[in-house]
Amino acid sequence: MKLIYPGYDVLSKRHSQSWDEPTRQVIDARLAIGGAPRFLNEAQWQTLDAVCQRILPQPIDRPPVPLAALVDNKLLNDRGDGYRDARLPPLRQAWQLGLTALDAEAQALDGRGFTGLTAAQQDALLSAMQRNELKHSVWKSMPCVVFFSHRLIHDITSAYYAHPTAWSEIGFGGPANPRGYVRMGPDSRDPWEPMAAKPGAQRKAEKRNRHVG
């Protein structure tokens, strides 16, 4: 994938005036999350990992954001969102049920689990879930579409876009305290913001993006 903000790494601002101590602590803790599951069982973990790769495909030329581990961590902490669609069970149960049901749907399809499907098959199954077409008895009373939108893509994408790698990818300025921003108008960039590569000016952007601290 062609980078829009070549050479930009929001973490290079870590020691600048744009980051304060609380933010450094919080991001450090987030970056330390990874490795084996601490809440989900092995089968659920494998399914989740496969789902994450379909919901948020990541380029192979950089270390991936450990999405499954981040979701698992959310489940471990069991921190809710402050609301729950009444059709959903609580956070942990919803995920356990949803992953098991998704695997069961895959089993019913061709006898192997979700991880055994091809990417296209996996996408098809996820699309069916989004269209509320999955009706396996394992889902119990939980409509698959509610699980899909409230839990599955919600939790996976929030984990991804809470990660510095994603911030760098979309050209977000990142943490900003005490230093905020000065140039507020259109097409204006403070020197501590990422520069998009204009056609033919890849080098210039790369150079500027190395000095955003």
Partner: peptide, 14 residues
């Protein structure tokens, strides 16, 4: 201003 003179790159301008 927030950050005072340590944040001079912003505060000199703002």
């Amino acid at each position: 201003n927030h950050g005072g003179w340590r944040n001079w790159r912003q505060n000199l301008q703002a």
